[in-house]
Simulated assay, not measured.
Amino acid sequence: MRLVFTSLASHGHLYPLLPLAVAARGAGHDVVFATAEDFHPVLEKAGLRAERAGLTIYQAFASQYAGDPAQRRREASDEEMAEVIGQVFGRVLPERFVADLGVLFERERPDLVIYEVGNSGGTFAAMKAGIPAMGHGFGRVSKDGLMTEIRGALDEYAAELGIAGGDRPSWGNPFVDICPPSVQSPEFVARARRLPLRPVGWSDSGDLPAGVVGHERPLVYLTLGTTPMSQAHVLGTAITGLAALDVDVLVATGPSVDVAALGEVPANVRLEGWVPQSELLPHVDLVVHHGGSGTTMGAFSAGVPQLVLPQGADQFTNAEAVAAAGVGERLLGDAVTADAVRDHARRLLADSTVADAVRVLAAEVAGMPSPEEVAGQLPDYV
Rank of each mutant, 00 (worst) to 15 (best):
A24E: 07
T337R: 13
D78R: 06
Y58P: 03
A9L: 02
V247F: 01
L235G: 04
T296P: 02
V141N: 02
E373T: 14
D204H: 05
V365M: 08
L286W: 05
L48C: 07
T253C: 09
D356F: 10
L280T: 01
E75Y: 08
A34D: 09
E149L: 13
R191D: 05
G211S: 13
S256N: 13
M1D: 00
G273L: 08
E149S: 15
T56H: 08
V269M: 09
R191Q: 11
A325R: 14
P305V: 12
A375D: 03
F175H: 02
G139S: 04
T123W: 08
S293R: 00
A159W: 06
A60G: 12
P110Q: 02
L224V: 04
V382N: 01
A345M: 12
E279M: 02
V98I: 15
D68G: 08
E372A: 14
V360F: 08
K45A: 13
A355V: 12
V360K: 14
V98N: 12
A267P: 04
S77R: 03
G26N: 13
L262R: 13
A62R: 14
P199G: 02
I178P: 00
L14E: 07
D356T: 15
A252S: 11
P369R: 07
E80I: 03
I57E: 10
L8A: 09
M1H: 01
V4W: 02
A158R: 14
E108G: 06
P110T: 05
